[in-house]
């Protein structure tokens, strides 16, 4: 053992550890990244995408085998229903197809002409993070920067936490370190949402800083308020499922159920520009 501590290997290990510690301290103080992660991430993200597709295909294959019998009856029933709907609601089906086309490209310019989107696919996740942070296959080369909001349809799902040239890491809205200025669209009451470990398994988060005589009720729709300039206004967060009075005084809080299952996301949009955006310095 003494020989090990006197040898060249131990000195080399010490140098490497010191380099990485210095890098961590610099990264923590300047919120920048180590150069190695940019280069290696460019290589690994295509492999993660392939692996993700393989995993999903295998899951779908076994799921189809398990439900084959039920599906054939269900298909017959649905075919009869579709034939009935098509004969009675031709115009409605045309409008559904048109809306479906808009949603496919997700450039909802009629509602938000100021938004600039970058489409991205979810290719990986951080297994150590307890709140579902994930990796997408677009980065700074596609105009994405730190603190850009990440959405799916019109729902806010997270925020860009770390950016590399060809990929970035997203922290979800259910993460306790992500605070979102929000409001009730009906009562116009303002607060902020934050994740909690106890609420995460149920896809929920907490709305805080409400007045003690709040008029928010169960079923209220909570959206981003746009205050602070980090998130655009009116991105959907979720619906209120409970109103709670804290044990030790202070304002009321509400429990919100997020409208999407974030762990099941395959594609997202990153809003790289919007009216009222304030570039937050890390």
């Amino acid at each position: 053992m003494k020989d090990f501590f006197r040898g060249r290997l131990f000195k080399a290990i010490t140098v490497v550890v010191v380099i990485f510690l210095v890098g961590m301290i610099i990264a923590a103080s300047t919120h920048s990244n180590t150069g190695s992660s940019s280069f290696i991430g460019m290589i690994i993200s295509p492999f993660q995408k392939i692996a993700g597709n393989i995993g999903n295909s295998i899951g779908t294959f076994f799921s189809n085998i398990a439900t084959a019998g039920e599906k054939s009856d269900k298909i017959k029933e649905l075919e009869d229903k579709i034939a009935q709907l098509e004969s009675e609601l031709v115009d409605y089906e045309s409008l559904k197809i048109e809306v479906s086309l808009y949603k496919t490209y997700l450039e909802i310019k009629e509602e938000h002409p100021d938004y600039v989107f970058a489409f991205a696919e979810v290719v990986g996740l951080d297994s150590a993070n307890a709140y579902g942070s994930f990796m997408i296959n677009k980065g700074s080369l596609h105009g994405i920067s730190v603190n850009d909001p990440v959405v799916s349809d019109n729902y806010l799902v997270g925020i860009v936490y770390r950016v590399e040239p060809t990929y970035c890491v997203v922290k979800t809205i259910l993460d306790p370190s992500v605070n979102v200025a929000s409001y009730d669209i009906k009562t116009r009451e303002y607060g902020y949402t934050q994740g909690e470990a106890a609420l995460y398994p149920d896809n929920q988060l907490r709305l805080s800083d409400l007045a003690s005589d709040t008029s928010i009720s169960i079923g209220s729709m909570i959206c981003t308020s746009g205050l602070g300039g980090v998130f655009p206004r009116d991105l959907i967060i979720g619906k209120v499922t409970a109103i709670e009075k804290p044990e030790f005084g202070g304002g009321m809080t509400a429990v919100i159920e997020h409208s999407l299952d974030i762990s099941d996301l395959k594609e997202v949009f990153v809003i790289t520009e919007f009216s009222g955006k304030i570039q937050v310095q890390p």
Binding site: A27, N129, R162, V169
Partner: peptide, 19 residues
């Protein structure tokens, strides 16, 4: 180093830990 590429926390933590 591979793990640090996808980590949502401080880069370098997993490199030092697994080393």
């Amino acid at each position: 180093i591979l793990w640090d590429c996808v980590s949502a926390e401080l880069p370098g933590f997993h490199s030092i830990a697994l080393l």
